[in-house]
């Protein structure tokens, strides 16, 4: 039995043995539908596409994913179960990966449950299902990025509220890194190459190209690197806390 899967299955199980899982899924489905139909001009747009649906995912994730990730480590630290978990014969990366995968798998379940909207659009018209599949993939990758950031921040504190707020702020910065209001304070005194590389860290630019059906290896590598960097930082933080 693999350590990662033991941690992952325990974590997933605990989502479903508390109201957390159901509340999260219901809110996610209701909000994503509401955004799509009210703001996305799903009907009036006159196009058989799920763009109005996917466009709001980054903003949904901005508040929902930190609510999911805030408890990952902060709660264990608060209740003392972290002492139990970290004295089991597991490598630190196994625990970190197991917990991250559980939360990612859970978000993908929530995402999967949006399938009625895919059925709807196929019933109403003749959308490009390849683009839709790519957009689902992009959305999932972006959720993974949010979760990795959130997991890392959760490991730094035992206060879930602090973890939530910090994660929202950091993810907000990541979302908008490519946009003028974020970059304008830097223009003029920071070299253009640095501004460009900050801009290239934006979740939104990478997500929007995937969600248009353009699967560029660079976008996938971007999210993979983002996730692994933050999980690695997560391991480092936990190890640092042992020495404190």
């Amino acid at each position: 039995m693999n350590g990662v899967s033991a941690v992952m299955r325990r974590e997933l199980r605990s989502y479903f043995s508390t109201p957390l899982a159901y509340v999260f899924i219901v809110i996610f489905l209701v909000l994503s539908g509401w955004f799509t139909f009210n703001f996305g001009n799903f009907y009036n747009g006159g196009q058989a596409s799920l763009a109005p649906f996917f466009n709001y995912h980054p903003w949904l994730y901005l508040f929902l994913v930190p609510a999911l990730s805030m408890r990952l480590w902060a709660e264990e630290r608060k209740t003392g179960t972290i002492e139990l978990l970290l004295t089991l014969p597991l490598e630190m990366w196994e625990s970190v990966t197991g917990k991250f995968l559980a939360s990612w798998l859970f978000t993908s379940m929530a995402l999967f449950l949006t399938f009625p909207i895919w059925i709807t659009v196929n019933y109403l018209g003749d959308p490009d299902n390849g683009v839709i599949l790519a957009a689902y993939m992009g959305s999932l990758l972006m959720a993974g990025g949010f979760l990795a950031v959130g997991s890392f921040i959760s490991a730094t504190t035992n206060n879930q509220v602090i973890a939530f707020i910090l994660t929202v702020v950091v993810c907000f910065v990541f979302l908008l890194a490519g946009f003028q209001p974020m970059l304008s304070p830097l223009v003029g005194w920071v070299p253009q190459t640095i501004i460009d590389s900050i801009a290239s860290l934006s979740f939104l630019t990478h997500f929007s190209s995937i969600s248009k059906g353009v699967i560029d290896l660079r976008d996938i590598v971007y999210f993979a690197l983002l996730i692994s960097t933050f999980l690695y930082a997560n391991v480092l933080v936990l190890n640092m806390k042992r020495g404190e």
């Binding site: 325990r10 199980r13 605990s14 043995s17 508390t18 209740t79 003392g80 179960t81 002492e83 139990l84 004295t87």
Partner: peptide, 15 residues
């Protein structure tokens, strides 16, 4: 090699 009972015997309350 170790079996460890931490102070206060923490365990996952929802399990």
């Amino acid at each position: 090699k170790i079996g460890y009972l931490p102070e206060g015997a923490p365990s996952y309350p929802e399990m």
